[in-house]
Design a protein around this nucleic acid. Structure first.
Lengths: 236, 236
DNA sequence: TCATACATTTCGGTG
DNA sequence: CACCGAAGTGTATGA
């Protein structure tokens, strides 16, 4: 990884056209060839970047007439041109370099995650009764023409119940479930299909929309479910 | 901005739980207090991060028993604890520091963009006939109870046409337009309202859904529109 | 402050 | 390779 602190100007042309006026910034050149430009704020998003695969070409400004403008040519030390795979380009004009160091980091073992929707879905699949009393699982990822329903269940009276699982319940989740229900209800083998929208938190607007469409909302306690799981582990 | 290259282990607890095993990485501490951890690949996304506002506390490992594990205590040099506003925490255990430098960057003038949806909408507003022959603009951002319709037009026979503009046409865009149309059609003053989904690219699934709902799909050539605009500039 | 829509979204999964 | 959906999404804008 190469770290460069420099006064620079950046021009991007690709899916959009963007320009960064001259200022001092951090330029990161990583081992995979990717380049990103960071200001002194925002942890997550760089000001500008080029995703791999891409190639970086460094040249002095006089090598390329086009890169030399009347205002800038006197002070430009180097011009970096980064070309992406879709023909997009990032041109970095460096005026003054304050810092430049390279470091060998090696490959990263990577991030281990827990608590995402997949886990929530797995826990609910193991404990469908926590969604509604008497509910039993038919299968996870129940296939439809427009994609799989998270959980297909049956209630005490044998009716099918399609469950959409979300960490945060918002309008688009209700729309998604609505589309599934529309399709499922066309299948005469399934008969009437109920809809349940299960999430850790459900936004008021999503709740109203769901209610309007006859979809039941269930808020799920992830920690309690995990506890249930742990308790089970201990018991059996 | 502070740049630290160090062998470190990272643990995040917040909306999810995540863990980074010991490895050499770049740790960025920015002027706004934000912290991000980068591996030697991926331009855009850090391995882990804490968005501002947040506070960084540095301490030697013996100050906090909880942070000291049997496996690690011998080699841990420092433990950084970053607390976010929602009570989420990022704990960085540093084993060995290879580089540590600080740089004053000042505030950034920021990115200047062109080519986003707003511009596309503006161009289409100036050239509604490029959406469909005979179309004339009534107004941009036509207000409804659930939000503004991008473009409200009328066709040759005087019927209202609601146009949803997207750079990339996907299912949620069709859903959005559907909601608008549902509302607009309740207004007796407007009469029948047609729907047009205009985008640079329209995904097949979105196209199918739109067709099913009687919404017309139009793919827009952004460069041609911009050319039309430039040509106009030259002519008048 | 909250809700919504956009993003050069990025990123991972599946067909 | 495409499409599709999730993300600790982040970010800007308007109510």
């Amino acid at each position: 990884m190469r770290l460069v602190i420099a006064r620079c100007q950046v021009d991007y042309a690709g899916r959009l056209t963007a320009h960064l006026p001259p200022a001092t910034r951090l330029i990161l050149v990583k081992a995979d060839g990717s380049v990103s430009i960071h200001a002194d704020d925002r942890a997550y998003k760089p000001l500008n970047w080029m995703s791999p695969p891409c190639t970086l070409t460094v040249r002095s400004p006089e090598e390329d007439e086009a890169a030399v403008t009347a205002d800038l040519d006197a002070s430009v030390a180097e011009v970096w041109e980064v070309k992406g795979k879709d023909g997009d380009t990032l041109q970095i004009s460096l005026f003054e370099v304050m810092h430049d160091s390279s470091h060998d980091l090696g490959i990263d073992p990577g991030l281990q995650k827990d608590g995402v929707e997949a886990h929530l879905q797995a826990l609910l699949a193991e404990h469908p009764e926590s969604i509604a009393a008497g509910l039993t699982l038919v299968r996870r990822e129940f296939p439809t023409a427009i994609g799989p329903v998270d959980l297909m269940c049956r209630n005490e009276s044998g009716a099918y119940v399609a469950v959409e699982v979300k960490r945060r319940g918002e309008i688009d989740g209700v729309e998604q479930l609505t589309r599934y229900l529309e399709l499922l209800r066309r299948d005469p083998l399934l008969g009437d299909v109920r809809g349940v929208f299960a999430a850790q938190q459900i936004k008021p607007q999503a709740r109203v929309l769901a209610q309007d469409r006859g979809i039941t909302c269930v808020t799920v306690d992830y920690d309690a479910l995990r506890g249930l799981d742990n308790a089970e582990d201990r018991l059996f």
